[in-house]
Amino acid sequence: MAIESSSDHDDAAAVVRAKRRIAALEQEVEVLRASNKRVKPQIDSNVHKGRAIRRLVSLFDGLEDLIAENDRREELLDSLDLPDQLVSTQDEDRTIRSFNELLRCLPWLKKKLSSDVDELDYILRDLRKGADSARGDDTANLKHVIVAWLTELFHPLDPPLHTNIKDDRGFIHHITGKLLCPVEYTWSLNLTKEKIRDRDPDFLVTAYSWPAMLYLDYTFDSGNIEKGLFRSALLLKAFKHIFTSPSSAKEVDGDGDGADAIVASQRRRSSESDMTTRSHLRFSLSNVNSWQSIDGDFDYYVFYNNIVDFFEVAPGIDAQARIKELLKWWNRKVFGKTRAIPLTPAQLGRFSVSRMTSQRAVHEGGSP
């Protein structure tokens, strides 16, 4: 009888281990193959990042225009003795603020602006592609869902609105017409409806009037035009649908009590998003079927800039304080009362835990 040596035993064990390892590797390969079949190709990262531009930076301005304005300013500042000597128009100031917001959203882009021109062209192309696709998606989505919101808020709609076409909206329908009507005019009067539909020179609908869709209960106080502005339930629904989730739009609990003057967010928080929402909301109520900046006498570009300037070019301390106060209201309405609220050191010092720590230090003979 042959006796198995320890060497033969070790070799056999090594072979068995190798077979187990091979079997495990083959199983891993099969798992990877199966998962690759299920996973869709990833969207290009720059295209994906570009989707934020039309929502958070600027609804209309081209990326090249923002960069060109920054380059122009840099060159002028290099030729001036003092930065205060720089003179610019309101449009130029608005553009540079959008450029600065672009860098806050995409901080890595600043370094790319100083890199190879060809590489930058590819980056801007992808960002632009993502930006424009986001705007198209937002307008298309609101086109359908807004009919359900109008039915909920103004039930019953007579005649009902179609979800797939917009030909029956705008000033043709009495509800969408009411929401689009400038607050200077009284939509409930038949004469007003006739004059607006006929584009009477005394009843033009332009971007220099606030439409009723932005107001609490869709009415305004001529003695205090800011009262209730940007507080409509429809606006809240549109904002939440785009920026939080479509289902969250169902959670809007009303327009508030009307005590605040206006509701808006400062840029870098939600204001740019909100401005974008208002433009998209008006477009979805209109009977225009494809996105364009001009709708009859109404210029969306002017409308958008008027809103930007309203929030970002506050005339004084009182207006700034109102915006800050209303920002709290807006955040509460959008994100709810359960969200975490950052505490300042001064606030923390008033609470019992911090006060106890100071008291204990005093009792031990130390400083608080």
Rank of each mutant, 00 (worst) to 15 (best):
Y208H: 15
D84H: 08
G130K: 11
C105A: 08
R33L: 15
A346V: 05
L204E: 15
M356K: 13
S188D: 09
I53N: 00
L157H: 04
G296L: 03
G130M: 11
Y122F: 09
T163R: 12
N46I: 06
A68C: 04
R73Y: 04
N224W: 07
E364N: 14
L180N: 02
L25K: 10
V145D: 00
F203K: 01
P159Y: 04
I175K: 12
H280V: 12
G336K: 08
E194P: 00
K178N: 07
G296F: 03
R21Y: 01
W108Y: 10
N70V: 02
D71C: 05
D257H: 03
Q27C: 00
S58Q: 03
I146G: 01
H173T: 03
D71H: 08
T276P: 01
S273A: 09
E325Q: 15
E69R: 15
A12L: 06
N36I: 04
W291G: 03
S352V: 15
F243S: 04
E26A: 11
E119V: 15
R267V: 09
V117A: 12
E26R: 07
P315S: 11
D121W: 01
G365M: 07
I175F: 04
L80I: 02
D297R: 05
R54T: 10
V183E: 09
P83Y: 11
I146L: 15
L281V: 05
F283Q: 03
L76F: 02
G256S: 06
V183W: 04
L235T: 15
V145T: 08
I123V: 15
V263W: 11
R38C: 07
P41W: 03
G296W: 02
L189D: 15
L216C: 09
S232L: 03
L124A: 04
E194F: 10
